[in-house]
Amino acid sequence: MKVLVPVKRVVDFNVKVRVKADNSGVDLANVKMALNPFCEIAVEEAVRLKEKGTATEVVVVTVGSSAAQEQLRTALALGADRAILVESADELNSLAVAKLLNAVVEKEQPQLVILGKQAIDSDNNQTGQMLGALTGYAQGTFASKVIVAGDKVNVTREIDGGLQTVALNLPAIVTTDLRLNEPRYASLPNIMKAKKKPLDVITPDALGVSTASTVKTLKVEAPAARQAGIKVKSVAELVEKLKNEAKVI
């Protein structure tokens, strides 16, 4: 079966971001960018399905600027077979991205779509579920285990109180949680090989999708800073402060 993996280029998770002085957004000039960590897990899961013989082809897709080709090459180096870039200079909301992905799903007809559960920049946690609604496919979100069996996929999900397992009819959508797998590193020979793998570039217009949005960002601010704290010398002093100063115990 064919597996489609949508990925996103985001600011590297170790970067401490700064809000721009004019409150228009976060300063991303000269900041290190990377593949969203949850997307890495999604690519890894798809590649493992291929290694097991369950998947025959792994296609990665991203919606973003031409710079996102870098992240598609990373995914190809990790084992994906080919890549699609839906090139859009604008920062798109989840619904617009889901609509573009829906158009790609219609063209590619994958049996399984694996996405990350959320991107660490917008922290939305929406795209996979929205794609579920648009395609009409069943969804297994926050997956920590994925087992494909015949025309179904069993997904163990991380829920608030523990774990839940659901059985979904294929084709289906899965979004990855952190504990699904440990992504591999791309080896140098694979990075070289990835440069030769096919990468198609298409535009939202070619897919016939409108990317208009009903939500706009008015401003972005830094969170309120915490007052500097103090260091205590002993446990006794700590308990005394908590009881008499902070009055929380």
Binding site: V17, V26, L95, D123, K216, T217, L218, V220, E221
Partner: peptide, 30 residues
């Protein structure tokens, strides 16, 4: 319609605050 995730404050009936970038920035969205 678009969804607005994890609001932490209501500014008005159509304007809300939500954290982005792991809480390192707060966006006001309408």
């Amino acid at each position: 319609v678009d969804q607005i995730s994890e609001i932490i404050a209501v500014e008005s009936a159509d304007t809300f605050k939500r954290p982005i970038y792991a809480g390192n920035a707060i966006a006001t969205v309408q």
